[in-house]
Amino acid sequence: MTEYERSRTMPARPEQIFDQAAHVDQLDEWLPGTLHVRAGDPPAVTVHEDRHGEDTRALLQARPEQLRLEWGTRDQGSYAGWLQVAGLDSGASEVTVHLSFFDAGHDPGRQAVHDALDSSLRRLEEQVRLHVDDTAD
């Protein structure tokens, strides 16, 4: 098993970040550009990966009381992950994403995963900023 984790501090309340991250219809806005999620019968989702042109049956579960998202593959159990939002005393929040690859064949490698996680966290921050700015007007 290989595990990866990245964190980013964002200038927003934890609830605002979690609400944006957990919105199933907007996951494509912050996930890596090669992944696309289609909602099914919750918690079931389908993830399409452009790189292989495949659809994978997956689960996505939001735990709002914990400000946590959890996901993983349904059939082969080769991949799982979570996103956790924690408030900071400054009014900002820290967002952590953790990925676990149980099958080495599904692990794209350390650099590719770190780049994808950093990019996803940056895109999530942009989406949160847009949403917060829209509600402030």
Rank of each mutant, 00 (worst) to 15 (best):
D75L: 13
V85E: 06
L31H: 00
R123D: 15
T2L: 10
F18G: 05
H52N: 12
E15K: 02
E70K: 07
Q26T: 04
S7R: 04
D55E: 06
S119H: 13
R63P: 05
L124C: 15
D107M: 10
V113C: 09
D103E: 15
H36E: 01
D50G: 05
R6Y: 06
L99C: 08
R122Y: 08
P14W: 02
A116D: 13
A12E: 04
D115A: 13
W71E: 09
D41V: 03
E125F: 07
Q76L: 14
A80P: 08
R13Q: 06
T56L: 05
R51H: 04
D50M: 05
S100G: 14
T9H: 02
V47A: 08
V45C: 00
A62M: 04
T34S: 02
V24F: 08
D50T: 09
Y79Q: 03
D134L: 12
S100M: 09
L88N: 11
S100A: 12
S78K: 11
L130G: 10
W30G: 00
E54Y: 07
E5G: 08
S78N: 13
V85A: 12
H48W: 04
L27Q: 04
H36S: 01
V24Q: 04
R68I: 02
D107I: 02
R6G: 03
T9L: 02
Q20K: 02
A112S: 13
L99G: 10
D19P: 00
W71M: 12
E15G: 03
V47Q: 00
R13T: 03
R57Y: 02
R8W: 06
A92H: 15
G91H: 13
F102A: 12
A104M: 12
D137H: 13
T73S: 13
V97E: 03
D137V: 07
D118V: 08
A116N: 09
L121E: 07
Q66K: 14
L60I: 06
L99A: 07
E94C: 05
G40R: 01
V37Y: 01
F102H: 15
R6H: 06
L27D: 00
T73F: 10
G105E: 15
M1K: 04
V97F: 06
Q61P: 05
R57S: 08
T135D: 15
A12R: 03
G72E: 10
V128Y: 14
D75S: 11
Q76K: 13
H106G: 11
S7E: 10
T46I: 04
Q84G: 09
L27T: 01
L124N: 12
A112H: 11
G53A: 01
D55A: 05
E65A: 11
Q20E: 12
T34I: 01
D137E: 12
A136K: 13
D133E: 14
G40K: 01
H114E: 15
E54H: 02
D19K: 04
L88W: 03
R38H: 00
H131N: 13
R123C: 15
G81Q: 12
D50P: 03
H131K: 15
W82S: 15
A116T: 05
V95G: 08
A62K: 07
R122C: 07
T2C: 05
